[in-house]
Write a protein that binds this DNA or RNA. Structure first.
Lengths: 136, 136
DNA sequence: CTTGAACCTATAGTCGCTAGAGGGATTATA
DNA sequence: TATAATCCCTCTAGCGACTATAGGTTCAAG
């Protein structure tokens, strides 16, 4: 049995975030001490790690609810989990592609060596989209 | 002189977003028709394009305020613009690196070919961070 | 028993919009 | 000129995933 502070330290999830997850129904409301403070048992740590990891991978709170639900029923087929993962993968790949275009453009414009704004590529490029080398 | 709807169509910035930018001080409050509707002249289009483009590159509203301010003063040195761009570049590169690690992991776990949750790599990997091949 | 750290709830703020309600203005057609 | 369709107005609230603050209570160490 440990306090929310300890749980936070052990999982790396901030205290208000833990309470938020409880509110969102991702973790069950734990027992309380006589003075109404939350007291957790170890099993919540696994669940919190699952949640944290999923968030890092970009799954939404709603996605995670579904994944947690699934993980509670090992006999169920796991298409849903796969679909979610595959969808996230697509998202991630699209974001990478977009960011790489931005990287390219930012690199180009930050190489400008003008001294005043009048001839600065940063400003010029932002002002005139037609100067972009890529489409976005 | 054109209406907010026309401005929206021409710049691709949605109507409420235009009003929001006005509220945030990115664009000046325009003239009004007799019936209190906004009437824009062409010059705001450039400014809106600048804003839109900057947003696409990931600059914050506050950043853009600074950049617009700069662009209004061509005689000023442009270090600030460069710094902002360089910082954005770093951000973007960090995000790319992180996303690529996620991509790797998602690819791996979505290749799972189990039929039930009991042996599903998606669920397992999310549950047990130690299975990750990458650190995050 | 005291003190200071940790905890509680509830509410508001963050960012960059977006949606909705409840109305008024403009424009095209009859 | 009347009317209908479309556009526009302001104001307020909502989104997601937290984060911060205020004002109070409880816990654990000395």
């Amino acid at each position: 049995m440990f306090s929310i502070g300890e749980l936070s330290k052990r999982t790396g999830v901030k205290i208000p975030t833990i309470r938020y997850y409880e509110q969102m129904g991702l973790i069950a409301a734990p027992e309380r001490s006589e003075g109404n403070q939350r007291r957790y048992s170890k099993d919540v740590m696994q669940r919190l790690s699952f949640i944290r990891h999923s968030r890092e991978l970009g799954f939404s709170i709603e996605d995670i609810k579904g994944l947690l639900e699934l993980s509670q029923h090992p006999e169920k087929p796991c298409h849903d989990a796969h679909n979610l993962a595959a969808q996230r993968l697509e998202d991630v790949q699209a974001r990478i592609a977009k960011l790489q275009r931005l990287e390219h453009e930012l690199k180009r414009i930050s190489e400008c060596d003008a001294n005043t704004v009048a001839h600065c590529a940063v400003i010029e490029t932002l002002a005139d989209h037609s100067l972009c080398e890529t489409v976005h």
